[in-house]
Design a binder for these strands. Structure first.
Length: 403
DNA sequence: AGGTATTCACATGAAACTATTCTCTGAGTTAGG
DNA sequence: TAACTCAGAGAATAGTTTCATGTGAATACCTGT
């Protein structure tokens, strides 16, 4: 690209006036100072946790709700208040927030405990130590002084799925061995049925209190969007009906407020790039497509080569009218591997990979029985053709079929 | 015809293995007193 | 003798492989009418 052209782009960008006042406000990690339509929950959480201000151990609390219903926000908001008050009045309360979904931070037993130890200022190596050693370090650090520890485990279901429920058992039991400190656990989960998979003993001690966050309805989402849009966009930028449309889309998706905010932000970005004066309904539609596509493409391209090869063989086997099964995929996958210079994996592994793609929603795979002719998965791709071609192209490049 | 029994082609589960990253430990080595 | 180096033992983790067992219904095979 010529230098001049590039300069033009930048200059154009500088000259065009932004539609946003403050885009941060629409980003998902932004914490607004007031949370609307969650007053009841905030009050409840506050009531349950308030004993800690008198240095009494609050009940363990369990919070459920679908994604984007404001669980994390509510909890963080209330705990921040507690922390503030505690530091003002010199009350020894320590609040630890951990998101268990973050890879390499807190997604296994060792890592969780190690991270907790680090919160208390103990350096703990990422590997090399036996787990019970790490427990001891953490334990000692915690029990050093008289204090209340509030441990918030976000997306706790992810952790238990990987690490098993023994970990929670250890954590709930830890109080009886502590002399000075006291530990309360606050679990957050998207999966309402999560506790039913737990050992009943753990379940009862963990969910001494429970709060369910219902999904927002369309009207509530509208309120939230309006509140934020007021600060994020310059006045008069949003055409009438835009907010309503965003809310309607999001409400269809089990009332996910985060999604709604993303719609609005991306729509704004698209409008800005088009040098439009206002954000229109059409921009929302474009935003929806873009978000959807970007997500899938990003997901696919960050997969390991073996996964890509698998997806590729599904794509090329798929265009015929007839249904495709695991066996077909495996044989074409092997060919792909030799072409790409990869060592083919076993069919067992491939089966798992297909199951994972199914979980991610990239493909549809349902196990069916063809009677005398065995049992297998019937596989089809779940995205549209336009994006399928793009993905095919990208994978070909990634595997070195094209230069 | 109606009822079992087989059988296929994988699915699903569990355990074991491999490779990588990292710590801790203790033996051997080195440099200074 | 104290400090340093370095190999070896052990851990955690992710990604696989190996071995074993499970499974749903279309067919094959009876059985008695």
């Amino acid at each position: 690209m010529a230098k001049k052209e590039l300069k033009n782009i930048f200059e154009k960008f500088l000259n065009s006036k932004s539609l946003f006042l403050d885009k941060k406000i629409l980003q998902s990690n932004y914490t607004p100072e007031s949370i609307i339509h969650r007053e009841d929950q905030i009050e409840l959480v506050a009531k349950i946790l308030s004993p800690c201000l008198r240095l009494e151990k609050p009940s363990n609390l369990f919070v459920y709700g679908k994604t984007g219903t404001g669980k994390t926000l509510t909890i963080q908001h209330t705990t921040n208040q507690i922390e503030q008050l505690a530091s003002e009045k010199k009350i020894p309360i320590k609040i630890i927030y951990l998101n268990c979904k973050l890879k390499k931070i807190a997604d296994t037993e060792y890592r969780l405990i190690a991270e907790l130890g680090r919160e208390f200022g103990r350096p703990i190596p990422p590997t090399g130590l036996p787990t019970d050693e790490v427990y001891k370090i953490f334990f000692k650090a915690m029990d050093e002084k008289n204090q209340i520890i509030l441990l918030i485990l976000d997306e706790i279901d992810q952790l238990i799925q990987k690490a098993g429920d023994e970990l929670l058992y250890n954590l709930t039991r830890i109080n009886s061995e502590l002399k000075n400190a006291q530990l309360s656990i606050l679990g957050i989960s998207n999966d309402i049925n999560f506790t039913s998979t737990l050992d009943p003993r753990i379940k009862s001690s963990l969910s001494e209190e429970e709060i369910v966050f219902p999904p927002y309805n369309a009207l509530q989402i509208q309120d939230i969007l309006r509140e934020r849009a007021k600060k994020a966009f310059k006045p008069g930028i949003l055409q009438p009906g835009v907010i309503e449309k965003c809310a309607a889309y999001a409400a269809r998706e089990h009332g996910d407020a985060r999604r709604a905010l993303e719609f609005l932000r991306v729509a704004g970005e698209i409008a800005e790039r088009e040098n439009a004066e206002t954000v229109t309904m059409a921009h929302i539609d474009l935003a929806q497509d873009k978000i959807e596509h970007d997500k899938i493409i990003d997901l696919v391209m960050t997969q390991p080569k073996q996964f890509q090869a698998t997806l590729y063989s599904i794509i090329i086997s798929q265009n015929k009218e007839q249904k495709i099964y695991t066996g077909d995929i495996y044989s074409s996958y092997k060919k792909i591997c030799t072409r790409a210079g990869l060592r083919p994996l076993t069919q067992r592994r491939l089966s798992d990979i297909i199951a994972e793609f199914d979980m991610l929603g990239i493909i549809n795979a349902k196990t069916i029985s063809k009677g005398r002719y065995g049992r297998t998965r019937e596989i089809s791709i779940s995205f549209e053709q336009s994006i399928e071609l793009r993905i095919k192209d990208l994978i070909e490049r990634d595997l070195g079929f094209k230069v």
